[in-house]
């Protein structure tokens, strides 16, 4: 492998890492601002203009807090829990296409850390591993509230993963590929998948909420019953990592939603922009389009959090197993029938 590729890829990786961290940081600020706006308050406004330095202040506070350790026989696992949560949250961004390509220094640069043939499955794999952070942390805390929180979170995530996977199958039957780059490319123009697979989108959106442990599915950290859920015993930056991982997950889920259903980096008139303004400007605009879409989804996540109350646990399981999974299967059957009909029509020439 020649060294320019290594340099190119490392620059992209560092940029994506920095972007994820920055977005997770400012999501905490945005969450408080949105909450304040929805509740007719002002929100954080002391640190810097509009409270923009609030995340830095929060980070400093978390770092300088006393690090409390519970009396647990599993100190190592207690440490590993937040580490797993954080690293899995950061790993997913590797397969996301942030833009088509830039033409710099006489070479084409794909705006993506790696274009895996199975990008979407990679996303599912990493998400499914993310449960371990919560489970191991919750168990190693040696506290019954943490354990119940961890078990709740894990069962919820495992249940909703099934519906999530099934909802995506209908989409895959249409696109015929698992590569996120190809899925983005197929949606050029206004050919977005949301118009063809609205049901799949709704199921995926609900499951994304459940996977990120966000309200209305935040039973894992249901304060009135479980104190803080799986991170009851955590303090200082270990606690910060769990919270941070949640925001990073939210950012990644929003990006995946934008890429799969809302055209990714495509925007209306992109091919015109490529012809008239050149590849670079068109693709920087494309990145801007993706960014606006994903910010919209992040806002939606927050909006729902401050609007809809938490589900009861049996309602959560009922929704996952008895409503979403059958709906996803029905969606697969409908998509299959439509595709088969189109194929037969094409075969016989009518």
């Amino acid at each position: 492998m020649d060294s320019t590729i290594i340099i190119e890829k490392s620059v992209i990786i560092v940029a994506v890492f920095a972007l994820t961290m920055l977005m997770a940081m400012y999501s905490t600020w945005a969450e408080r601002k949105v909450a304040a706006w929805l509740q007719d308050r002002v929100g954080p406004n002391r640190a810097g203009p509009f409270g923009l330095f609030q995340p830095l202040a929060d980070g400093l506070k978390l770092f300088s807090k006393e690090e409390f350790e519970p009396n647990t026989p599993n100190r190592f696992l207690f440490f590993v829990g937040p580490a797993i949560a954080m690293s899995t949250a950061l790993m997913t961004s590797a397969v996301i296409p942030w833009g088509d390509r830039l033409h710099l220094f006489g070479r084409d640069i794909l705006l993506q850390a790696t274009d895996l043939n199975i990008g979407l499955l990679y996303f599912f794999g990493v998400v499914s591993v993310g449960v371990y952070g919560i489970m191991i942390g919750g168990w190693a805390s040696n506290n019954k509230f943490s354990l119940i929180g961890a078990v709740r979170a894990a069962s919820q995530m495992v249940s909703y993963e099934i519906a999530m996977g099934l909802s995506i199958i209908a989409l895959l039957m249409m696109t015929g590929t698992l590569s996120l780059r190809e899925i983005s490319m197929q949606q050029a123009g206004m050919n977005w998948n949301i118009f063809y697979q609205p049901l799949s989108f709704i199921i995926f959106l609900i499951c994304a909420f459940a996977e990120a442990n966000r309200t209305p599915f935040d039973l894992a950290e249901c304060e009135t019953e479980l104190i803080g859920g799986y991170h009851t015993e955590y303090s200082s930056m270990k606690m910060g990592f769990y919270l941070f991982a949640e925001y990073a997950n939210m950012f990644i889920s929003s990006t995946i939603l934008a890429v799969l259903f809302f055209g990714g980096y495509n925007y209306p008139g992109m091919s015109w922009a490529v012809e008239n303004w050149g590849v670079n400007i068109a693709n920087v605009l494309g990145f801007g389009a993706l960014f606006i879409k994903l910010c919209g989804f992040i806002f939606f996540f927050m909006w729902v959090r401050w609007t809809i109350p938490r589900f009861r646990y049996d309602q959560l399981m009922h929704l996952g197993w008895r409503i979403l999974i059958p709906l996803a299967i029905v969606n697969i059957i409908i998509t299959g029938t439509v595709i088969l009909r189109a194929d037969i029509a094409a075969y016989f020439g009518f």
């Binding site: 199975i118 499955l121 990679y122 599912f124 794999g125 998400v127 499914s128 591993v129 449960v131 371990y132 489970m135 168990w139 078990v151 894990a154 069962s155 495992v158 993963e161």
Partner: peptide, 18 residues
């Protein structure tokens, strides 16, 4: 590799741990 991670590490072993 990915299917192995999804199925074994992501589903079966989580249920086991559970």
């Amino acid at each position: 590799a990915i299917v192995h991670v999804i199925v074994y590490s992501g589903a079966i072993m989580i249920l086991f741990l559970f």
